[in-house]
Design a protein around this nucleic acid. Structure first.
Length: 818
DNA sequence: TTTGGTGTGGTCTGGA
DNA sequence: TCCAGACCACACC
């Protein structure tokens, strides 16, 4: 076959083997959208370090002899080489053992680790395709130029090339063909599958109904439905498949049903079946050659904490990010329609819309994941499922190779346990707020405080306590960091920060809302995620580059800087009303004062550190705790556009009912914006009235709480645990991570006794919602302004409610009722 | 096996 | 019956 030369954007990577060799496959598309498969032979390897006392020449000779005695490995070992690499900054000798197949790495390592002359093995747990991407400098969602031989293709691609040369080539991610799908079930049956892609394809498959239509194709049974689904995927042949919770649900169910009918779920480009790779307790559905991205996974791991949705359902998340929710249709309705073989269009609408929402979410979120792929340098499938610690770790691993550093081994189970049991260290400093309402609050914060400290003080495991020249001494303890050479991790963090600054500069020159702007935003956001995770990574027990002392030192310097700035402010006539870790709030501070302050502070700071003005707020409020101190981490700020920022209050907590949260927000607005406390009281009274009258929508009474361990491990029967058990009683599966939505109903017994999953709740207890939700949430704001519980209840009710409040206190959480 | 510490607050529980 | 403390979740940064 002829020689070809092709450029393409890499989307997925994996490896295969034949009897003799291992090959890495790169799957992607060229600029015309043609599917490209590149196959490149690559030999797996790992490193061995011999015992210190052995001279390297003697050692390697001994090692060779011992290897030679391993008859069963004779053919498996391709070569061994003596190489020099840095281990935590110190150059050392290692033996690089090159083998034929990925499985040889594990097998050989298991044997070698027991040898007397061997000290340690390294880099034995890096999958071959990841190894290849790192060693060649290839980044997924980036481009390569391949020279090689064109090959006949049996893998559903347009071009297949056997690589001779692969070089990297810079360009933006290609426009991929993306397909979303979603299933509907009744009992154990999959009754419908919808598919939507970004090339105007839209179809639902169903069975059981008499007649289909243009949108819905009717198959005669579930088996045929599944077969049709498989053939349609193959026909469309997308580059990326997106699902919402497909790992745990859609793909899992499809596989289950395929197993029943003994159907091969062979969606792979090479006709391989969907593999469920283990990832802790969860299994991920992996398709060879097509990147399956489960949007839910990414949201749960990375995006979730920055969202305000109480639960991360497609409906809630789409509402928050796209402003569009799901079509409303309960599963009971689907079931009853299905049993009667009615409402095909209704179900199809619903099912198709789910796929569409998933595709639109993907449109929004995938570009962010692409940027992470390009920075961390691992495939889309992998990156979209990585937690923060893994993203940082793989970024470090790639850069370790680039800088000649040996990748440290993952801690073993016992080591992780030991690390986990370590005493906590002191973290950020919180300056006690000044109670009440303040005007013109300027909010200052450090730009990436911890990353900038890592860079400034060269904080890295290998620079720690190295006495060779001048050192940075950690404030408040005896550790220090050398300045003689640049640490491995600080150098990576510095690159992240530098790139981010450059991008932010570029962003200012680009039109807002343009595609270019969006791309730059995503890129800087990805860099920010990684830089900000570096501190937490040091203290994470599962980290390869774990260093508690590094983490502790970063926090110590952080405390010093924020305290210094607060001291400086106070000494110079600025009144600080609050500060937390890397921020401070100054009252009565207009733009000019703020500017002066910034200038003065930044002059004193090291070059890499910078204080920013986050904004100036018209007013803000700090309230008391129930013990009478001023509450930290709870405040509300009102900006000059009349918008309110709420932190820490019940309003922003998912374990409070909407009715209480909304009332509290209105109270805050009345107090801060309208400066009308009477109005605030009226709002609360009106809410109480609504609750009493029974006119409150049940969904505004739902309290969401997460189950964080197996139900039987709970010591206390908390309301959410009791509600979860009621789910279990009805045959629902509740696992760690499940978020329980429950309502406190009328009746006898404790709150837990009366906590019922909201789907099953028939009524609600008005007294609970008044006394334990709305009133405490409102009082939190009003108490500091001199109002008491009695003030809330109107004159006519007063005797009644004070009496109730008296009994409530007497009986604690058992609500008094007549 | 799913980054860290700091801080607030609700409900349950068992001993006085 | 009352209370303190344990337990638990979730916010902030």
């Amino acid at each position: 076959m002829s020689d070809i030369n092709i450029r393409f954007c890499v989307i997925d990577a994996d490896h295969i083997v034949d009897e003799n060799n291992a090959y890495v496959r790169l799957w992607g598309i060229d600029k015309n959208g043609r599917k490209v498969l590149c196959v490149d032979r690559y030999d797996p390897y790992f490193y061995v370090q011999l015992k210190d006392e052995l001279d390297s020449n003697v050692g390697i000779k001994l090692f060779r002899e011992q290897l030679a005695r391993l008859k069963e490995f004779g053919g498996g070992i391709k070569n061994i080489e003596l190489v020099k690499k840095k281990l935590l900054g110190v150059e050392k000798n290692f033996i690089k053992i090159i083998v034929r197949q990925p499985s040889d790495v594990q097998r050989l390592r298991d044997i070698i680790k027991n040898w007397e002359i061997v000290n340690e093995e390294y880099e034995y747990d890096i999958p071959l395709y990841r190894r290849y991407l790192i060693d060649k400098g290839i980044v997924p969602m980036g481009w390569v130029e391949v020279r090689g031989k064109a090959k006949p293709c049996t893998e559903h691609c347009d071009i297949k090339v056997e690589a001779r040369d692969v070089i990297i080539f810079k360009d933006a991610p290609a426009q991929s063909h993306i397909l979303a799908f979603d299933i509907e079930m009744c009992g154990n049956d999959i009754i419908m599958i919808s598919m939507v892609d970004n090339k105007n394809f839209k179809k639902a498959l169903a069975w059981g109904w008499q007649k289909g239509n243009k949108r819905v194709e009717i198959l005669s049974n579930e088996k045929e439905l599944l077969e049709r689904f498989i053939s349609l995927i193959k026909e469309r042949n997308p580059d990326i498949i997106v699902t919402y919770n497909g790992d745990r649900f859609d793909f899992a169910k499809i596989r289950e049903r395929c197993d029943v009918y003994k159907l091969a779920l062979n969606l792979g480009r090479d006709d391989s079946v969907v593999v469920f790779t283990k990832r802790g307790r969860i299994r991920s559905a992996k398709i060879k050659g097509i990147a399956h991205v489960d949007i839910y996974d990414f949201i749960e791991q990375i995006l979730g904490p920055s969202l305000s949705s109480e639960i991360l359902t497609l409906d809630m998340v789409a509402n928050e990010l796209l402003g569009v929710g799901k079509k409303q249709l309960e599963w009971q309705d689907i079931e009853s329609l299905w049993r009667k073989r009615e409402g095909l269009d209704k179900i199809a609408d619903y099912c198709l819309f789910d796929s569409e929402l998933t595709l639109r979410l993907a449109d929004y979120i995938l570009p962010q994941i692409y940027e992470l792929c390009r920075i961390v340098g691992q495939p889309l499938f992998d990156i979209s499922r990585m937690p923060y610690s893994q993203l940082v770790e793989w970024l470090l691993i790639r850069n370790a190779y680039r800088k000649g550093e040996m990748v440290l081994n993952r801690p073993k189970f016992d080591e992780i346990r030991r690390r986990r049991e370590a005493e906590p260290y002191t973290g950020g400093y919180v300056y006690s707020p000044k109670e009440g309402i303040h005007e013109d609050i300027a909010l200052f914060d450090f730009q990436s405080l911890y990353p900038s400290i890592i860079i400034t003080y060269n904080i890295s495991p290998e620079t720690l306590d190295k006495k060779n020249g001048e050192e940075h001494k950690v404030p408040g303890n005896d550790h220090f960091f050398t300045t003689k050479f640049k640490g491995f991790i600080p150098s990576i963090v510095e690159e992240l920060i530098r790139k981010r600054i450059a991008i932010k500069r570029k962003m200012k020159k680009v039109k807002k809302n343009s595609i270019e702007h969006r791309m730059l935003y995503n890129r800087q956001y990805a860099l920010k995620i990684l830089a900000n995770s570096s501190y937490g990574y040091y203290a994470f027990p599962g980290a390869r580059w774990y260093s508690r002392v590094c983490a502790k030192s970063i926090a110590a310097w952080g405390r010093k800087y924020i305290q210094d700035v607060i001291d400086f402010a106070t000494r110079n006539g600025y009144e600080v009303v609050y500060g937390d870790t890397d921020s401070l709030f100054i009252k009565d501070c207009d733009k000019k004062r703020a500017k002066n302050f910034l200038e003065a502070v930044n002059k004193m700071l090291p070059e890499t550190m910078e204080l920013d003005l986050q904004g100036i707020y018209k007013s803000g409020i700090f309230v008391l705790t129930k013990t009478g101190t001023v509450a930290k981490k709870r405040y509300a700020l009102l900006d000059y556009d009349g918008k309110i920022v709420i932190r820490g209050f019940e309003k922003v907590r998912r374990d409070w009912a909407n009715i209480a949260k909304e009332t509290q927000e209105k109270v805050l607005l009345a107090v801060l914006k309208d400066r009308n406390e009477k109005k605030a009281l009226d709002i609360v009274r009106a809410t109480i009235e609504r609750i009493r009258s029974g006119k409150v929508d049940m969904k505004d009474l739902v309290i969401y709480t997460q189950i964080t361990k197996p139900l039987n491990e709970y010591d206390q029967n908390a309301p959410h645990v009791a509600a979860a058990k009621k789910y279990v009683g009805r045959g629902k599966v509740i696992t760690e991570g499940s978020v329980i939505g429950y309502i406190i109903t009328k009746g006898d017994g404790s709150i837990s006794d009366r906590a019922v999953p909201y789907e099953y709740a028939k009524d609600y207890d008005p007294e609970y919602y008044i006394n334990n939700q709305v009133v405490p949430a409102a009082l939190r704001v009003l108490q500091g302004l001199g109002y008491k519980e009695e003030d809330i209840f109107s004159a006519t009710e007063k005797t009644q409610s004070s009496l109730e409040s008296f009994f409530r206190k007497s009986f604690k959480n058992r609500i008094f009722r007549r």
